[in-house]
Structure formats: structure tokens, C-alpha cells
Design a protein around this nucleic acid. Structure first.
Lengths: 105, 105
DNA sequence: AAATCGTTTTAATAATCGTTTAACAATGGA
DNA sequence: TCCATTGTTAAACGATTATTAAAACGATTT
């Protein structure tokens, strides 16, 4: 279970258009991650700005990086992402989650 | 589907300890909602401060209120909550969500 | 009318946040 | 070794923003 402060940090990190876009990109990319340059290109963000935002996301525990040759791959931390979501929806409707979840698709 | 700006707004609203606590309380309470006073008491927040935070949450679409006599009941907006979560996890791992979701409990 | 419940407005305080430019570091290939 | 590539770091600039409390107000119930 995540601590409140950690969740607040993660939420704050995501409450910014560029960082939210970065994170979504990483979420859809999966555990393999994406090279920083590819993200910069796709989102049209300067490398410096991107680094700045990566730092914020890393600090919040939402992403992890790994160096591979000249490239730095960033990947979403799914454990933290799920932890955050769980924290928000914990004990939803007093346990009767059916009430608040949309009908299973 | 929610718009990015709306999601950013919701995330920002939740990125504050008191508001996060309020929202969790409402989520666990379900659609019936909780009276403002009861929340103030439980979270030990002054009425004025609570109103301030409610306003932020309302503005972000995360909560709704209804007046019942002297009481104002606040309830979480589950549609927006789920929309936000879906936005974050959309196309998770390129569609193979098994990779990033914890084993079903 | 009095008591209760909550909102709004105002004011004071404190804290950043995001971007760009330029310099720097590390890697890998010619 | 030298150079191109890939990112990070640091500094500086500009623009706001968030949080809380106090006081006055509105509305409702008894």
C-alpha cells in the first residue's frame, strides 16, 4: 500500500500536460520503455525540457530509466501506477464496487 | 473519453493531501455522499477550508453536491474518476494489459 | 427569533513552475 | 583519436499559484 504523500507526489507529477503525455506514452509502450530521443521527437519537446520532466516523474517514482549504449530508455513503473489507482479507488463504495464501476465491457 | 486538460485538472485537484483525503472519503462513501460537516469533523478541517477544497474538487468535476435541508451532501463523481483512471491506463502495454497489471487477486 | 450549517470574500503568506540557452558528459563509430 | 550523437545539468528569465484563516453573509430548521 502506498503512503498518502507518495500518492500526492505522483498525482502532482502527472498534473502537467507534457508529463501526462510522456507518461501515457510510456504506459502504452510497456515495460520495454522508449528512448528519450524518440519521446522528444514524438512530443516535440526539447531534450532539456524533457529531461526536466523525466526528473519530476522519476522523483515521483512513476518512471524508471536504463541506459543502453548511447540511448536512455524510460519506462513507466506499473507498480506505482497501479498503487496510485488502487489508493484512489480503495474501498470504493464501501466495498460494493459494482455501484461505481461502469458495467463490464 | 476525457480531454487531456480535464484530466490534468482532476489530477491537480487531487494532488493535495487534504483534497485527496476528502476524495477518498467520498469514494468509499459511495453515491449517497457525505454531509460537509461530517467530513469537516472527520478530517479536522475548518468549514471554510473545506469549502475551499470542495470548490477545487467541484471545478475539476470530481465531486458533486446536493443540498438537503441545512446539509450539503458531497459525493464523488465516479464517472470522472473512472475516466481519469482509464485515461492513464489507456492502451496499457500496447493492449497486453496482463503485463502491467498485478496478478488477479 | 435563535441556532445550525455552510459559503464566499478578502487578505496575508509562502512557494514555485516551466522553458530556453549554453555548457558538459558519455558513448560509439570512422 | 576525433567527431557526431544522445542526454543531462546549470543558470536565468518570466509568470504565476496555492493554502489557510477571519469575517461577513445566506439559508434552513425549530
Amino acid at each position: 500500500m502506498m503512503k498518502p504523500a507518495q500518492v500526492v507526489k505522483a498525482l502532482a507529477a502527472l498534473a502537467q500536460p507534457t508529463r501526462l503525455a510522456i507518461f501515457r506514452l510510456l504506459v502504452s509502450a510497456g515495460p520495454e520503455g522508449v528512448a528519450a530521443g524518440a519521446i522528444a521527437k514524438k512530443l516535440k519537446v526539447s531534450p532539456a525540457t524533457l529531461s526536466f520532466h523525466f526528473r519530476a516523474l522519476s522523483h515521483a517514482g512513476l518512471v524508471e530509466s536504463r541506459q543502453d549504449g548511447r540511448f536512455v530508455y524510460y519506462a513507466a513503473n506499473f507498480t506505482v501506477m497501479n498503487g496510485m489507482v488502487d489508493y484512489l479507488t480503495e474501498n470504493c463504495c464501501g466495498g460494493n464496487a459494482e455501484m461505481c464501476k461502469p458495467p463490464a465491457k
